[in-house]
Design a binder for these strands. Structure first.
Lengths: 242, 242
DNA sequence: CTATATGTGAACGATACCGTACGTACAATA
DNA sequence: TATTGTACGTACGGTATCGTTCACATATAG
């Protein structure tokens, strides 16, 4: 595995980890590990994509850009998934604007190498299809969630997903960032975070959030968190048996 | 094609129509045409499904059922698509609760026959994958739409999609029905519909809506309509060339 | 050290939508 | 004709969220 940064990088991407050993070996030999820095736009909407991106940790948000300049997250992706879903549906253009919200590292695999892997290792295609299904569940739940649920529930849910996707109780995200991805005012996020901090669920200073009590977050979140979490869990069984 | 009802039924489902002639012939020989009546729940969430359902006209809403009893539409499906997306992702369980909102007819094709068709006619799998992509676009746009857009925009968008999916300017849907699928009060829908009627976009009496001026609806809707409409159009080219 | 940018708290009125309730008009049925 | 059910209009107070703005604290850069 080539790495552009120095460090100790075991792939923690759950899709890659669930593959058969030979497929893992193949993909890791072709993968390049790159840093995803906060705010980085990985692809523009409609752009041809050159690489599939498998995050090791952190959060990438698929952003919708509206004509009036507002933007909001369509879905978020971490180490349970990958960027490049449109690829397995056929057609090489992205259908969203993946933007890094919580930084981390990721394995970049070129479309050519991925094609070769799909050709030679059926488990690769299977794993990507399983993820496509769980992403669909995420999207469906999010549609309903955004219709029915309140700011505090949605913020809590977002923080829980983020917490699942980092390897620490502390990670970097500002209230401004949360307000952008959830399409609400920063003032609303501020008020909600204040309530959550007072309740003992988390603490934060200047963009550093520490989750101190997940159970409180879970109780203030909506059922959508659990549903999506379950879909992710079932899409990445610990090890492929095939 | 077997038909349980008497009548003149040419399949108007755009996925089926885009297939190669031999695939169409095969599927039509196995399909059963059934009436979808208003309010009918085609599958419960998580149920094993036995048939894929290809609507000829009308609107089927994939409903989310929340624990508190509220429900809301995750996505809607008409003659541009089919029920049974989870099938092509692998796994035989539904991930939503398809419910008929605007009645019509549909071709029901058993999973066994569909498997056989996919095996023998590559264009079937291709067409389903193309639709999976456009459904993903619909879901992504809907997530953003439900975050950012107002009642009038969302009602207008829903009516435009419905209008695309029936073969007439008049179709059956109550304000109560719209309020259910959009997760808003009937009173809100009533107020919006009143404004739309005063603007000359539509008229209605007791569950019969007539679209009188699409352009007004389009101007009061949001950009999400056009984006989703485009995705549907590109997923069903007039005729497969392959 | 100073200047600037960033992250957060707090407050204002405005407004969109909520839950609920009630009245009216039409349709179907008896 | 009387009764019942359905579809729709409307109105009330309540509240979540909006848009905006000012204040302040802390980190970062020069």
């Amino acid at each position: 595995m080539k790495t552009e940064m120095i460090g100790d990088f075991e792939t923690r991407n759950k899709i890659l980890l669930a593959l058969r050993p030979d497929a893992i070996a193949f993909l890791e030999s072709r993968a390049v590990v790159r840093r995803l820095s906060e705010g980085q736009v990985l692809y523009k909407d409609g752009e041809l994509f050159t690489h599939a991106i498998f995050p090791h940790e952190g959060v990438i948000c698929l952003m919708a850009q509206m004509q009036d300049g507002r933007s909001v997250e369509k879905a978020s992706i971490g180490n349970e998934g990958f960027i490049g879903i449109a690829f397995i549906f056929g057609g090489g253009k992205t259908i969203s604007e993946p933007t890094v919200q919580v930084p981390g590292y990721a394995s970049w695999i070129s479309i050519k190498d991925l094609d070769e892997a799909i050709e030679n290792y059926p488990c690769v295609r299977d794993a990507m299809m399983r993820y496509a299904k769980s992403l669909t569940v995420q999207l469906m739940e999010s549609v309903a969630c955004n219709s029915l649920h309140k700011a505090e529930q949605r913020v809590s849910r977002w923080l829980l997903h983020a917490h699942d996707r980092v390897n620490s109780d502390t990670f970097q995200v500002t209230q401004q960032g949360i307000s952008k991805v959830l399409g609400m005012r920063r003032a609303t996020v501020s008020s909600v975070c204040n309530a959550l901090m007072n309740a003992g669920a988390l603490k934060y200073t200047r963009g550093n959030v520490t989750i101190t009590d997940r159970s409180i977050l879970e109780s203030r979140s909506c059922e959508c968190y659990e549903r999506i979490h379950l879909a992710f869990a079932s899409s990445n069984p610990p090890k492929a048996k095939d």
